[in-house]
Design a protein around this nucleic acid. Structure first.
Lengths: 245, 245
DNA sequence: TAACGCCAATCTGTGCAGGCATAAAAATAA
DNA sequence: TTATTTTTATGCCTGCACAGATTGGCGTTA
């Protein structure tokens, strides 16, 4: 089941652009890409359309396909996030996402306490109980999956679609954190208690408690992993000038 | 300079799908679309690629182009946001975005106080001063543009790309709010003071003050406009089952 | 008879090759 | 400098072959 050809081209070009192999400002020619990648014009064109929507390139007549600067890349595009996490900008990407979740998840917990359907409240209690169980056993593999599930449920239970879609990239950074060996041998009791407290608060419609305890979780994780992005430079894109080209 | 053909097709189909004219579960056939829209295969295919990336459709062999349910739509896609704001789901869209900004902007202000470059701090002071000036004069047109600019600068000054890209949709809802006549005849003194306080706090690197005052702004706007989405239903997409079709 | 499994026909997206039209940069002329 | 022509790469169109999934028929079996 080989993934479709144009997707392969999107993957090929996208990862190279984000990875810096193809530098910003480069001009790609559709005809060149045809020979180099040995595919037909239609797949090139469809791939370029997708990359253009992600903000990686823009194609104009008579000049070609221009590779755009990082500030034009759509930071919410799932593929862009994936490519950045696999590049030397992974520090900056982790920081952005972590800052985002550290403000979104407490609000999601607060909303979930008010709006979550009964089934999700129950499931949260189950998951947090299992997290404590496997966490104390030191079963990090199972714990990781439960952790991802926990945060995904809270985000979904907020009833805010935007929050819910953040579950996927957040799951990715949780996985990345364990893969990079940034997790303690077994989760801290403190963290287990906070997860439990969030689940309890949501199931009893205690919105303030849900927010507070989720906020505690966020503060801890922020402290734990902020070392990764040592001095990854921040990008300031002045909104005054739309700066097209 | 008419925008390119395939973009027109994206616009045509996208707005109709989000608007509900083309209901979820519909099957579109590329050949049909060719005659109906009177364009060639290539533009149809490129348009479908873009719509597929936005999560509006998925195309499979032997069956056609299936229109997906709203929970698959990418809520961070700028076009999806625009189409939703122009549809009968505008209440739900406003709510999502407002909830998001109400947690993101305070955090952005806090980060801006720490990381903002000098030029942006200065500009914030200027803009907030002008907001007070034109606000007290009752010049709502100029005030609106300054307000949009103010929040865009704070988001950009956070140095977080994800926050920065939210400036565009947030600007859209600020515009929408005035167009719908949801703004008072002249801005409240309270609101003017808070904006000023945010600018002051950021320029003096007072992160706690920046967050607190921005949070006040968010609370007020949330109260002012939450009436729009009366009882727009919340969508709960269970993350457990990936549910394909 | 009814249920099951296999196979072929069919339908539709995917990919290929080549053509012309057009817009915009670059070169040239005024 | 300004106006005009030339150049050239994308935009758009069309005909064709292929792949893969659905459907229905056919024969076998319980």
């Amino acid at each position: 089941m080989p993934t479709s050809l144009h997707n392969q081209v999107v993957e090929h070009l996208g990862s190279r652009i984000v990875g810096g192999v193809i530098p910003q400002g480069s001009i790609l020619l559709a005809a060149d890409l045809e020979d180099r990648l040995e595919v037909s014009r239609s797949v090139i064109r469809e791939a370029i359309r997708v990359l253009a929507q992600a903000g990686l390139v823009t194609s104009t007549k008579r000049v070609g396909i221009r590779v755009l600067a990082p500030e034009h890349w759509n930071p919410f595009d799932t593929q862009v996030i994936r490519w950045r996490l696999a590049s030397d900008q992974q520090g900056a990407q982790l920081r952005s996402l972590t800052e985002l979740r550290s403000c979104v998840e407490p609000m999601a917990a607060e909303l979930a306490a008010v709006h979550a359907p009964e089934a999700m409240r129950k499931e949260l209690l189950m998951v947090s109980a299992q997290m404590s169980h496997y966490g104390r056993q030191g079963d990090l593999v199972r714990f990781l999956e439960l952790d991802i599930r926990f945060h995904a449920i809270v985000l979904a239970a907020s009833g805010n679609e935007m929050f819910a879609t953040l579950a996927t990239p957040i799951g990715a950074i949780l996985r990345g954190r364990t893969e990079l060996g940034l997790m303690p041998d077994r989760p801290h009791e403190e963290a287990l208690a906070w997860h439990q407290a969030v689940a309890d608060a949501i199931s009893t419609a205690d919105s303030a408690g849900a927010r507070k305890n989720m906020d505690s979780i966020m503060r801890r994780t922020q402290n734990e992993i902020s070392g990764i992005w040592q001095e990854a430079p921040r990008l300031f894109h002045d909104p005054t000038r739309p700066q097209r080209k």
